[in-house]
């Protein structure tokens, strides 16, 4: 009568773990040689940029866990955070393989300083209310989806495969965020005002998304080429949400440098302190 899986823990061998334990390398089984004509250093730097965007955005979504306004959104936000974490793992692993350093995903995630992170500042800004959360997610997912749709044709087959997977995920993320922006914008007076504030707060980080870094021009998608598509989607969603486009200027960088150059906001140091604390306290450990 006690036919349960708890007993099975004493079985021998890895079969008791349902799917085995050999998931150390997310790119296991893939040909990771950098194709001729692709600059390996550029490819690695570009994968770091895209990987860091996903890792840091995922972290901000993880911080929503147990705080969502409704259980369904608890599930949805965790799901989106997981998707982005999965993209980050693949992209960081790709970066470590391409640059020949042999650094794995964890070494890159846990043992770089904030000046070495290449994510856009939009991803790292401290969480606000739920309106800020969905405003940021709408902007982030719309921008990233446009990039990934083009990266499906990347000269690097590994990056192209990662992009193909990401496109499906981001289409859902954008849809989820857009629906909430519409509900909140066209909901109550209070929710309309909060959605307005959330969008305004996010908007100062939008310009940076479309300012091309030389690496992006050389090996990836020049983000300035997807601006029109981004604007089209936002115009449609904001109209349905009875909201006008924010009239907020983009933030300047520091001597022209911002996230892609490793120049971040003050929030980034605290984010990494949290993200990296256990890994750095046990440097020789295996997890």
């Amino acid at each position: 009568m006690f036919d349960n899986a708890y007993e099975a823990l004493n079985a021998e061998g890895d079969t008791r773990w349902a799917f085995g334990t050999g998931f150390a390398d997310p790119l296991s089984g893939m040909d990771t040689a950098v194709p001729a004509g692709v600059d390996a250093a550029d490819l690695a730097a570009y994968c770091l940029m895209l990987g860091d965007d996903a890792l840091i955005m995922s972290h901000r979504l993880q911080q929503w866990c147990t705080c969502a306004p409704e259980l369904e959104d608890e599930v949805a936000l965790a799901n989106i955070g997981l998707d982005l974490l999965g993209q980050a793992r693949l992209l960081l692993a790709r970066a470590g393989k391409a640059d020949g350093s042999g650094r794995g995903e964890d070494e890159l995630a846990f043992f770089r300083s904030d000046r070495e992170f290449r994510n856009v500042r939009l991803a790292e800004v401290t969480n606000g209310d739920f309106a800020f959360c969905v405003a940021r997610l709408l902007v982030f997912a719309t921008w990233r989806l446009a990039l990934m749709q083009r990266l499906v044709d990347s000269d690097d087959p590994v990056l192209a495969a990662i992009a193909a997977k990401a496109v499906k995920e981001l289409a859902y993320h954008r849809d989820y965020a857009a629906r909430w922006v519409v509900r909140l914008g066209d909901g109550t007076e209070l929710s309309h005002a909060r959605m307005r504030n959330g969008l305004d707060a996010v908007w100062s980080y939008v310009e940076e998304l479309f300012a091309a870094h030389p690496v992006e021009r050389r090996v990836g998608v020049d983000p300035s080429t997807v601006r029109a598509e981004f604007d089209g989607v936002l115009t449609e969603v904001l109209a349905a949400a009875t909201l006008s486009r924010p009239e907020v200027d983009g933030l300047a960088g520091v001597s022209g440098h911002s996230g892609r150059d490793g120049v971040h906001t003050e929030a980034m140091g605290y984010l990494l302190a949290e993200l990296q604390s256990v890994a750095r306290a046990h440097q020789d450990a295996t997890w």
Binding site: L55, Q62, G81, D106, F110
Partner: peptide, 20 residues
């Protein structure tokens, strides 16, 4: 947010999501 490897982080996030 403090899980010491990305794999363990994914496992834990998925588990907490399952609980929801």
């Amino acid at each position: 947010t403090r899980a010491p490897s990305l794999r363990r982080k994914a496992i834990l996030l998925a588990k907490v999501q399952d609980e929801a």
